[in-house]
Design a protein around this nucleic acid. Structure first.
Lengths: 371, 371
DNA sequence: CTTCAAAATGAAAACGTTTACAATTAAGCA
DNA sequence: TGCTTAATTGTAAACGTTTTCATTTTGAAG
């Protein structure tokens, strides 16, 4: 009824050894697959293990084997649809390779991020996957990174020689902007924060270059908050709608930001896409919700997770391989938040104009072919 | 350019000891706060630690201290808005108490769930938080649970004496149904799966009892898939709309399921809330999206996480305290997916009728007062 | 029944800490 | 200066494994 005072004595390899009348080395051998041990003793030992309820203590094992089979996953916040989706895929593929995940949030804070790295490092993880908080991360983190294999996800710290896997952000916004222009838009406003991360810098550049290449003047509305939450997007969009009306389309730097725009637009009686077209980036799961139906640039998240984990365990197993930089290709996911500015023009022409150029976007940062 | 072959020699306490001309016991003392050591030697040792870049190896420390400061978090899928939000809060509060989180998914699979428990157990976590996959979890898991403090979240395995923290699911659907009835609905369809978890059984019961208490006939449409994904909800809702039209409101067992309904309704040209009112449960972050605006039953997720972690570390620190069962109170979050069936009736009357009864819901499973 | 190689097992060291206990040093006091 | 006691430091064991190396057992061949 009240507290159940268990003895909580864990059974160790020695207990099994005593019970089975063998040395504990033999027990260890019975438990590891490819060791030389007679089949009948193995069976006997296994039987005793089972009877006593022995389970191997992986922290002891880690110490002597010098591997923990643990991967640190450091990210700003698991409560962000893009990141939880990434985390999901990362955990899945890691588990399939017999690695477990230690989750550490940095809360979009550089100091916390540093603490998180230190934490997982102290716990002797075999490798680290970082979704960085900001570009400034790198100088901070530099000193830790040579201790253990590391791969950055969703952010190519351009100055850093570390491994990373990202989507081709430049290409993403480039084709996005082209799509809007193909729909007839000439006044497209880029809505986001340009400077905090390489990711966002590249996204802004892709948009800008696409505009310039088609003789359209780039227009920016810079957020002073991170494009990470709907709330931030909402606040910024309210400000935007208050200050400006000189655009027919909004190209948001992230889907969460786009959702914020959606919310603010609702409040201001602005119809999407009838009054203004809206384009996102990331294709988070909620972009496809009915009523939302956000046209957006898809990041191949499962593939990114797969590549990231595989680069990492590759490095782990080969003791610091050469750095790998993988840049995957984003794709335009058409839904209903963008519409042609001139409804009279036939769709086929739009398609045609679009197809004209997107196939040869020259992305300055796509160092490698996609998966 | 190519592989950078680091020596990767980690500096241990012995290296520091040698360098500082002390025994390694002294180094250990210098690093742990309340030990008797002369201040100048501590400084000297700390200086050497710093110079050599020493960081303590927590797996070695874990072994001798017999604690890992690791909490296992076992849940069906981090890629589920409710769970990622819970995970977020759990990780935050755990981190503030100097615990780290080991994340393990069960993928809604009983076998995987058992494997996950075993995994974290082998890694010697100090405690486990489980968001169970199904009620059947318990018989499976029973044998592991006495090994280490455990707390269940979002599911009170009623047969089990383990600690748990949930919302009062019965009360939740009860007040939800009452709200719909207060809006004038008499044909309310409960849409979900009734049997897999205690949570869902209780939700169905709360709805049913509310109906009966107000002389309304309960109507069920049982899903044969789990109410965990939008896609499942969408498929089931399509089937529902094909088969039946005898209701004016849908009370969904989860928000994700409600989103599925929204999607299917869109497809069938059914307007929400004009044609049919829709009520959810959980208040996931996306329920408040513009255009979605789902009226729903809020689970106090941050509070649940807080209680869960605190129960757990309480147990850890007091070596198996008595079991704690905490049932928090859900609240109705009104948005715009429900509307009165008779628009002529004034809002005040609706409010009045509603207030009449919800204050004395007798929930058979609320063993304890809310936080 | 030896002999000998191969196979199986055991003994002990190692992984990097913490901590009880013993030994040393410092400090106070006559 | 010597004595006593408190504060500091060192020694060694322990945590639960894996693995090297040495030892024993096995079984086949002579």
């Amino acid at each position: 009824m009240s507290a159940s005072n268990q003895t909580k004595k864990t059974v160790t390899i020695k207990d099994v050894a005593r019970e089975a009348n063998v040395s504990y080395a033999t027990v260890s051998r019975a438990l590891s697959p490819g060791s030389s041990i007679r089949e009948d003793t193995r069976q006997r030992v296994l039987e005793v293990c089972d009877r006593l309820g022995y389970t191997t203590n992986y922290v002891a094992r880690s110490m002597v084997m010098r591997e923990t089979r643990l991967l640190g996953l450091v990210l700003p916040s698991i409560d962000n649809p893009f990141m939880s989706e990434m985390a999901y895929h990362i955990e899945c593929i890691a588990r399939s390779l017999d690695y477990s995940i230690m989750l550490c949030s940095s809360s979009y804070d550089l100091k916390e991020e540093e603490k998180a790295i230190n934490l997982v490092l102290g716990r002797q993880v075999d490798g680290i996957i970082i979704i960085p908080t900001a570009r400034d991360s790198y100088p901070n983190l530099k000193k830790y990174l040579n201790k253990v294999p590391t791969v950055f996800v969703n952010e190519n710290l351009m100055e850093a020689p570390e491994s990373y896997v990202t989507v081709d952000n430049y290409r993403g916004t480039f084709i996005g902007a082209e799509y809007l222009m193909a729909l007839g838009h000439k006044r497209i406003l880029y809505f986001g924060r340009r400077s905090t991360t390489a990711t966002h810098t590249l996204r802004a550049m892709g948009y800008q270059d696409a505009c310039l290449q088609h003789g359209v003047e780039p227009m920016f509305f810079d957020s002073y908050t991170d494009a990470t939450t709907i709330t931030n997007g909402y606040e910024m969009a309210r400000q935007l709608f208050r200050e400006r009306q000189d655009f027919t389309a909004i190209q948001a730097s992230t889907d969460t930001f786009a959702l914020g725009v959606l919310q603010a637009a609702d409040e201001y009686g602005i119809r999407i896409p009838e009054d203004i077209s809206l384009l996102g980036f990331d294709n988070i799961r909620y972009a496809q919700l009915p009523k939302i139906n956000l046209t957006t640039i898809e990041q191949p998240k499962a593939a990114m997770a797969d590549v990231a984990v595989n680069i990492l365990v590759g490095k782990i197993q080969n003791d610091f391989e050469a750095y790998s930089h993988r840049v995957l290709t984003p794709t335009l996911t058409k839904r209903s938040s963008c519409m042609p500015i001139d409804l009279s023009r036939p769709e086929s022409e739009i398609e045609w104009r679009l197809r004209l150029s997107t196939n040869d976007v020259h992305s300055p940062f796509a160092h490698e072919l996609p998966l």
